[in-house]
Design a protein around this nucleic acid. Structure first.
Length: 154
DNA sequence: GCCAACGTTGGC
DNA sequence: GCCAACGTTGGC
């Protein structure tokens, strides 16, 4: 999952008073579908900082809700993400709740991801790949954690 | 700030 | 249904 650190960083998640955050405002159908169809409670997530001084993976979060909760911002006329075509009866946009797990001892930069032959198929290194939610192959997940100097729980 | 990539919108 | 215009993303 990508986030701009100026907007909501992994550190912000760590210190969030609620202990978690709703991953709202996703307004891309493909990203929404990845979240809705391929995430479930308990899944670990690589936390990527985009538009950062050093873009890359800074740590790990966890999905702590089902991955298809209606995104409340779509019903809020004051929100930038208001969608008048959506209705509470048939919500168009969904979200999941995410909780902090860990910062990597060594953040893994985008340049490192690109330089690692084992990660050649990772979506995030592909040119033009802008989706803010992307599936990660288990082997790639483990490799990125290894590069970050962090061991996932068994 | 530039610009490539790409999704969405809307006229026709 | 095509496609030009436009807006957004995000690395650099």
């Amino acid at each position: 999952m990508k986030s701009e650190p100026e907007v909501y960083s992994l550190d912000d998640l760590k210190h969030d008073p609620a202990g978690k955050t709703g991953w709202d405002s996703i307004r891309n159908y493909q990203a929404r579908n990845f979240m809705r169809d391929q995430m479930q409670a308990g899944d670990l997530v690589l936390y990527y900082h985009s538009n950062a001084a050093v873009p890359g993976v800074y740590g790990v979060a966890r999905i702590v809700s089902e991955a298809a909760i209606p995104d409340p911002t779509q019903f809020d006329p004051a929100s930038r993400y208001y969608d008048p075509k959506s209705s509470p009866d048939d919500p168009r946009w969904v979200m999941a709740e995410v909780a902090y797990v860990a910062h990597f001892p060594e953040p893994v930069s985008l340049a490192q991801l690109k330089a690692d032959p084992a990660l050649a198929d990772m979506l995030v290194i592909k040119r033009g790949q802008r989706l803010s939610i992307q599936p990660v192959a288990p082997a790639d997940f483990r490799r990125v954690c290894e590069l970050g100097g962090w061991t996932p729980p068994a």
